[in-house]
Structure formats: structure tokens, C-alpha cells
Amino acid sequence: MAQSLTSHRPGLAIALKLSSVLLFAVMSALIKASSDAVPPGEAVFFRSLFAIPVILIWIAARGELRSGLVTERPMMHFWRGVIGTSSMGLIFAGLGLLPLPEVTAIDYATPMLVLVLAAVMLGEKIRLIRISAVVIGMVGVLIMLWPRLGSTTADSAATLGAMLILGATALKALVQIHIRRMVETERTSAIVFYFSSTAALLALLTIPFGWVMPDALTATQLVMAGLVGGGAQILLTSSYRFAPASMLTPYEYSSMLFAILIGFLWFDEAPTLIMLAGAALVIAGNVLVAWREHQLGLTRAKVRAVSDPKG
């Protein structure tokens, strides 16, 4: 029954997907706007804590408030939280050092790294087409990173930011591999809820490293980041109930348009031609992977629906 509904509501799925991508871009902008005032660990706390009420309302609306939070493997949620929280912290730190479009572009490397980790950790076979896609994507990443790494005059803060985002991307790929195992026994609602809860608790461990009392504007931005991020996660999850992941994957790259627009209007940032060229190659590699997975029937909608996009 659910599968029939999925195949007949692609328009709704696309609308939900695009809305989630836009909200994630807004969330990143809110975190970036507050990055000069609060440390990354504090931003992770607000982002995670204020997403929880939104997630609980969503779970209750689905009638899963009692059954949806039952877990058979609590330690898997813990380790998913540790890895995901680390990735979120690195992304939030990088947002304060790099233009928003550049952060978005580097983050596109995640699916490439998922393929590599799946082959190494899960024994999945990747053949010529997907190997070629990984190579294309990695060349794109190197093109984007080269101005940060290949010049003696490169800004040290921006170089650090690029490394932080690249590290976050690797951890996000590891999270997706971990979730592939979790979905065998755990509900989507449990994975989403326990991640936000674990992330909020783990973020408290960073208090000794310099938390501050935010002013009214900064506090509002942080609270809104949590609410918007929680809403974006729900829209993303819901989109995969109405269409397969292979169909929705290309719409993920609308985030570059949103990032460029928000970056220009809010932060007076403009993407460079080198960054756009590298991003184009990474997107091409990802689209090739999506096409190949569609051909093979290897859609992973459930995994992507509960993954940790941009924190």
C-alpha cells in the first residue's frame, strides 16, 4: 500500500525534498551568522536540543510516540550519536571559516566516500561505472581544495575550514554506513530522535571549552537553527515516503543555488569559478552514482531519510 502511494505522488516528494534542502541551507546560514559569538559545541547543543520538540510532534502525529522510540540496540544509537555529533561540530566550526557555497560544495563528497567505505567495511562491490564516478568526484574535491592547499599565500583560517569540512564529510559517510546496519532493526523515528538527544548531551561536554551567554539576537538564531533543522529533517524523511531516493537525489544539488543566493544576500559571499568547476565535477560523479544505483535497483531511501545532512 505504501509503495503504491510512493509511486503516485512524485510531485509531493519533490516539493518536500526541495523544501528540506532550502531549510537546511537556512539552518547553515543561521549557524554561520552566530559562529563569531558562540563556539561550535554550544551551537551543536542548541541545534540538537531545539530539534527535539519538532521531532516529537512529528512522531506523535504519525501515532508512533510509544512504539516509534523503542530500540533493540541502544549502543548503536550511542555510537551513531558520537560520530554524527563530531561531524556536526566540525561542520559548524568550518562554517565560521569558509563561504557558505564552498562548505556546501565540499559536503557533496559524502556520497563518494560512502561508496568507498561500503566497499571496505560492508564488502559491497563497486564496478567500473561507480569507480569512475568516485574518481570524477574526488578530482572535483581536489580542484575545490587546491586554492586552500596549493598556495603559500592561502589564508590559514580558510585552509583550516576546508580541512574541518572535509573531516566532517568523512564522518558523515561513516554515519551513513552505520545507519545501513541500524535500519535492519531500528525505526526511522528512533534513529532521528535518539541522535538529536545524544548530540545535545554530548555537546554539554564542551562547556569547559568556552561556552558564552549569547545575546538576544544570537540566541534567537541558535534556537531557530534547531527548529528549522528539525523541520528540515522531517521534510527530508517524508519525501522518501512518496518517491524513491534515486529519483530525488538530483534535487539535492539545488542546495548550491540556495547557498549561493543566501551567501550573497546575507554574507556578501560570491563563489569562485574554481569552486564552481570543482562542484560541477562532484555533482556529476554523484549523479552518475545515482543513475547506476537506479539501474541496479539499489535505492537506499530509508538510509538517506535518516542521514545527518549538514548537521
Rank of each mutant, 00 (worst) to 15 (best):
H77A: 02
T188L: 12
L128M: 11
T152D: 15
M138L: 15
G150I: 12
I177S: 09
I55W: 02
L95Y: 04
R241Y: 05
A43Q: 07
K32C: 13
I179K: 03
W266Q: 13
G123Y: 06
S86G: 15
H294P: 01
L69V: 10
G150N: 13
M275E: 13
L160W: 11
S67T: 13
L248W: 09
S86E: 05
A301L: 00
P74M: 10
S156H: 14
W211C: 05
A2Y: 10
F92V: 13
L90C: 12
A133Q: 00
L201F: 12
L145W: 12
L281S: 00
A232L: 06
V116H: 06
I207R: 09
I131D: 06
M144K: 00
I91T: 14
R9T: 06
S238E: 15
V120K: 04
M75F: 15
M76L: 11
V38S: 08
G231D: 08
A290L: 04
V139K: 01
V306T: 13
M112P: 00
F195C: 09
F46W: 12
T206P: 01
Q176L: 14
L235Y: 12
G123N: 07
R73K: 15
V183P: 01
M88W: 06
E42Q: 15
P214H: 09
L117F: 13
G161L: 01
A284N: 07
G297Y: 03
A154E: 14
A199Q: 00
I274Y: 10
I59L: 02
I136W: 02
M112H: 00
K17P: 05
L128S: 12
F50S: 02
W291F: 11
F46G: 02
A162H: 02
L265F: 14
L235K: 02
P271H: 13
S132R: 01
A173I: 02
L149M: 13
M213P: 02
P99G: 10
A259I: 11
I207S: 03
M27K: 08
I31C: 03
I14G: 06
R180H: 07
A118T: 05
K32F: 04
S196Q: 12
I177E: 04
S86D: 07
M138D: 00
S34Q: 05
T249G: 01
A279W: 00
T152A: 15
S34T: 09
A158G: 04
Q3T: 06
E186I: 00
I283S: 04
L235H: 08
V223A: 05
S4E: 15
E64A: 11
F50C: 00
L205V: 12
T6R: 14
A105W: 02
A158R: 06
M121L: 15
S48W: 05
V26Q: 10
P208E: 08
I91V: 15
S4N: 15
A225W: 03
V120G: 12
I14T: 11
R300V: 09
I129H: 03
S254H: 07
V103K: 00
F92K: 11
V223N: 04
V282A: 04
G137T: 01
L222S: 01
I106W: 03
S67M: 07
S34M: 01
S246R: 05
D155W: 11
V135G: 08
I234H: 02
V26D: 01
H178P: 10
